[in-house]
């Protein structure tokens, strides 16, 4: 009961405050005019100062976020002695990244090599998925029959967890590396098929009427109308796909072994090097973020608006 009373009072004070704030300039327009007439240049912040302020306002929240994450991490690491804190992880990272491209043995290579190996697998699997998924999406979106035909296949296969495809890959390819690429392929293909198809099915009837009146060939329809319209949808699919691919590669590599960031995490777990595991988490996150940013800027470049 009392809480309600207090909040009502609060509202009243706030309202009064607002009124006073609002009435200030109205009450004395002449005074304001006088002030403006006087050389009050020094009082007004310069354009540069305003820009600086906007920049810091833009920068501060993410920095606070990162600091908060660091604080929580430190707190937890103090409670649990097995978990290294930010400082010891940092030292370990500096050491690790001072020589990222060494090769001692096939199973003991620098972090740089591991990241590159994972990126290569993702690139191959994702590239193949784009090569097949995007044209498939166009066909499915363009022809009702194809869309009905594809619906049950996509409906059944899409919800399958990516790693469930690994045994099939190992069975068919009889090698770990192509099996990992296969897993990336099969998990990255769905967003591209679906988003492309949705884009094609959303092409406004007006544009298709233009195509009909002009009697455009199927090739012209695809290149001049469908493709430019669908591009933003397609890029959304591509972005989702690369996100999924990068999520899946770590898990797939843990199972297949070899060189790669996923296997590296597993190896460091076997060595009980927890600092390196935490570093790997950051590396995976940052690389994923960079991939996402790169594709977002690419998408913006291609958008016609």
């Amino acid at each position: 009961m009392s809480a309600i009373g207090i909040s009502k009072e609060d509202i009243k004070t706030i309202m009064n405050n607002e009124q006073t704030v609002a009435s200030n300039p109205v009450a004395s327009p002449k005074a304001a005019a006088k002030k403006a007439a006087r050389p009050a240049v020094a009082k007004r912040p310069s354009a540069l100062a305003l820009k600086m302020r906007a920049f810091f306002q833009w920068l501060l929240p993410p920095i606070f976020g990162l600091l908060l994450m660091g604080a929580v991490w430190t707190l937890i690491s103090h409670q649990s002695p097995n978990l290294p804190g930010p400082v010891s992880t940092w030292h370990s990272a500096v050491e690790l990244f001072s020589d990222p491209f060494y090769t001692n043995s096939p199973n003991d290579q620098g972090i740089g090599w591991n990241i590159l190996a994972s990126l290569e697998r993702v690139g191959l699997g994702f590239g193949l998925a784009a090569l097949i998924g995007i044209p498939l999406g166009f066909i499915i979106g363009r022809f009702q029959f194809m869309s009905r035909m594809a619906a049950p296949i996509i409906g059944i296969l899409r919800p399958v967890s990516p790693l469930a495809w690994l045994p099939i890959g190992l069975l068919v390819f009889k090698a770990a590396n192509p099996a990992a690429i296969w897993v990336i392929f099969i998990s990255a293909i769905w967003p591209m098929i679906i988003n492309t198809a949705v884009g094609v099915s959303k092409v406004p009837q007006d544009y298709m009427n233009v195509a009909k009146v002009l009697n455009l060939s199927e090739w012209k329809i695809v290149t001049k109308i469908l493709f430019p319209f669908v591009l933003p949808y397609m890029m959304t699919g591509v972005r989702l796909s690369i996100g999924v691919a990068w999520l899946v590669i770590v898990a797939a590599e843990m199972l297949t072994g070899g060189v790669g960031i996923g296997f590296w995490v597993w190896d460091e777990w076997n060595n009980l090097n927890v600092e390196h595991i935490i570093i790997a988490i950051f590396v995976v996150g940052i690389v994923g973020l960079l991939l996402e940013l790169a594709l977002t800027s690419l998408a913006r470049r291609f958008s016609y608006e």
């Binding site: 544009y207 233009v210 009146v213 001049k224 109308i225 430019p228 319209f229 016609y304």
Partner: peptide
């Protein structure tokens, strides 16, 4: 046909 909403291709 001249369409009501012009139907120009925006790209």
């Amino acid at each position: 046909v001249v369409f009501q909403n012009h139907s120009l291709l925006p790209w």
